[in-house]
Design a protein around this nucleic acid. Structure first.
Lengths: 208, 208
DNA sequence: TCATCCAGTTAACAACTGTTCTCCGGAATT
DNA sequence: AATTCCGGAGAACAGTTGTTAACTGGATGA
């Protein structure tokens, strides 16, 4: 059912992607609410008015960036949470996955961290909606685990949120250590592992 | 040793405070990196050039706002963490304190949450430095607790960071629920309590 | 082949930005 | 009483901003 796009639509999507890429690069050193429309078109190498063919406003572009940054991440999270193995190796694998993702998509991660509480309401809401989805998916995976026996729904969702928030905090720490020596990156890894370990311990004794 | 300021210095501090207040109000709906110098002076009702008498740039103003927002909060945190009582009442008291602070200083809290990962580097660093201080202070209080026996320094600091991050997350949730019905605010309280409870459980069984 | 569509261009608009230099008048100092 | 200090005002600067309208030329579909 994947129809090959016409020359026209293909070109449009190409320039649209160029807008997204240019904006993401510019947003490494500023927030969305200060990103100018002309600034983006200049970076793409196109007339200012061309912007309107793709986005209503920079806020609109921001929402598109949220989808690009988080939309394709859901399957990854699902499989990571559900992978079998001892708790210690699961923790190591999750942290490894975060570290790798920050390495390969630093600008996307920075954008999400920055605009989650940023100055543009529609973007904040888009991010919040995605994070709620993540939490629900994590909760669904947690519910399958044998350790979830006896847990009520509210407690499961609470734990899922805790995990999601913790992942964001860890990602942000890796981001800060991106250009730091390997030593500091290792310290971030250790800290994150310890925190996940403590949560795991709390989870294990929750029903006492 | 508190010397009464001369008329001149008093007036200067007064306008400086007017700058801070006006900026904080403007920052409710945008981020610092898009805050214009003229925008602030217009809100204060003063000539644009007057700005330079108080701040080098808007980034400089932002750093001053960080100190105003977090500087006076340290004693509060210290006493809150160290207050005696059962763990359940301590949790309730901490959450109550956060809720009250968000109610009385919403703009300050929003500013910190927004600029913690925002687009202005000096401000990010100022916030980070303050949060590190908070974590160290919390760690020092935790170390006094009888439950900390056998804990090493790294683990204590890890737990302290967990608490500090959790406080920020909770504050941010209260902020989102500021104008929401009491029902939702109660749900935030319950969620935060549950999460702190799980951390407490993990803490209690850490040395197993 | 011819008419239609539409992504991108060009030109122009009033409004706004940060920063400079020069000046004023009341407070502070001598 | 005379002088210095200094927070703020005023005017002007070159550049920037978002948005509009009318246009161009190649892809599209009849």
């Amino acid at each position: 059912m994947s129809h090959t796009l016409g020359i026209r639509q293909a070109q449009k999507q190409k320039t649209r992607q160029a807008f997204l890429d240019a904006a993401l690069a510019l947003l490494e050193e500023q927030s969305l609410s200060s990103l100018g429309l002309r600034e983006v078109t200049r970076a793409v190498g196109v007339a200012p008015t061309a912007f309107y063919r793709h986005f209503r406003s920079t806020a609109d572009l921001g929402v598109a960036l949220v989808d690009e940054a988080l939309g394709s991440l859901h399957p990854m999270v699902r499989t990571t949470v559900s992978t079998a193995g001892g708790s210690e190796e699961r923790i190591a694998r999750a942290i490894e996955l975060i570290a790798r993702h920050v390495d390969t998509h630093p600008a996307h991660v920075r954008f999400i961290a920055r605009e989650r509480h940023g100055g543009v309401q529609p973007v904040r809401e888009a991010i919040r909606a995605q994070l709620v989805r993540f939490a629900e998916e994590v909760k669904a995976e947690l519910a399958k685990d044998s350790e979830a026996a006896g847990w009520n729904d509210d407690d499961l969702l609470m734990l899922a949120h805790l995990y999601v928030d913790q992942m964001l905090i860890t990602a942000s720490l890796f981001l800060e250590a991106l250009e730091a020596p390997a030593e500091q990156r290792e310290r971030v890894t250790q800290l994150a592992a310890r925190q996940l370990r403590l949560i795991t311990v709390g989870r294990r004794h929750w029903l006492d």
